[in-house]
């Protein structure tokens, strides 16, 4: 007589349910850029949903903002108008200041002969699909929309024009890529102070320290001034040379590694969680077969 299935999983199924993900984790967790057909399949499976829902949430947010503005008009129009006017003036001043500083940096970068500054590289626009904010990684998922048929090579620098470096491509699945942000705890960038020859390394600090990085240099250099601009040095050929990382915000360096090294705090110009579009800095365009 055939036994009717009761719906209770057997020991083998229990074991499989525990061991299969554990094996997958053991394989993929060994290195941050480890990927497989299965991990790519998981990305392909979830990408349409993420894109659709992301667009829906964005348009919903914009609609809600517009609605709130319309509601607010009836209550206190004059006060709001003068407040917005003041804010507008402030922002105008700030924008002029940022523009002026960027122009100075651009001139410096051109004078230094940085490849980024002379526009010899190809910038390919990509849209941010999702972000990772958890304790494991700080990352973005991006997708190239046009031109189609381009694959994203690993170790491609990602920038937000004109503000500076966003991160580096760690994994890529066709025209979709996972980017490790520069503030990720595992991020290490060879860098130097723009206009000087002080080389060092920039380390990400993770979410806890919000938008800040560590810049570590050897102690035998002159102290770095607050407000100095940090750019990628191109050492190790991982990051493109001459991309702006951020600005030194600490008044003076903190002793590190038993006084042999000095640590400075750097604030990136980019607010990572507001990014919608980024650019990939490609040496050459790699066409898909």
């Amino acid at each position: 007589m055939r036994r009717r299935y009761s719906g209770r999983p057997s020991t083998i199924i229990h074991a499989l349910l525990i061991l299969v993900p554990l094996t997958l984790l053991h394989y993929h967790g060994a290195h941050v850029n480890r990927e497989s057909t299965l991990s790519r399949a998981a990305v392909y499976l979830t990408l349409p949903g993420q894109k659709t829902m992301g667009a829906l949430a964005r348009s919903g947010g914009e609609l809600a903002n517009d609605y709130l503005v319309i509601l607010g008009v009836d209550f206190d129009l004059r006060r709001r108008y003068s407040k917005l006017n003041k804010e507008h003036e402030k922002l105008q001043l700030l924008m002029n200041d940022v523009k002026r500083r960027l122009e100075v940096q651009q001139r410096r970068a051109t004078m230094c002969g940085f490849t980024f500054a002379d526009g010899s590289r190809k910038l390919v626009p990509a849209r941010v699909i999702s972000r990772s904010t958890g304790p494991v990684n700080q990352g973005l998922r991006i997708q190239i929309e046009a031109p189609s048929g381009i694959t994203i090579p690993k170790d491609t620098s990602v920038i937000a024009y004109p503000a500076g470096l966003v991160g580096i491509v760690i994994r890529s699945t066709g025209n979709t890529a996972d980017v490790q942000l520069i503030n990720d705890k595992g991020s290490t960038i060879p860098a130097q102070i723009s206009g000087t020859n002080i080389p060092g390394t920039t380390y990400g600090t993770g979410t806890r320290a919000k938008n800040s990085l560590k810049f570590i240099v050897t102690a035998d250099h002159d102290p770095i001034k607050k407000g100095s601009t940090l750019v990628t040095s191109g050492h190790g050929n991982r990051y493109s040379k001459g991309i702006i990382i951020g600005e030194v915000t600490s008044e003076r360096g903190r002793q590190a590694a038993a006084g042999v090294k000095v640590e400075y705090t750097v604030s990136p110009y980019i607010r990572f969680w507001q990014l919608e579009e980024v650019f990939l800095v490609l040496e050459t365009l790699v066409e898909e077969d």
Binding site: A42, T46, R141, D178
Partner: peptide, 8 residues
């Protein structure tokens, strides 16, 4: 759905 997360 989570970028850079190890599968599993």
């Amino acid at each position: 759905m989570t970028p850079l997360q190890p599968l599993g």
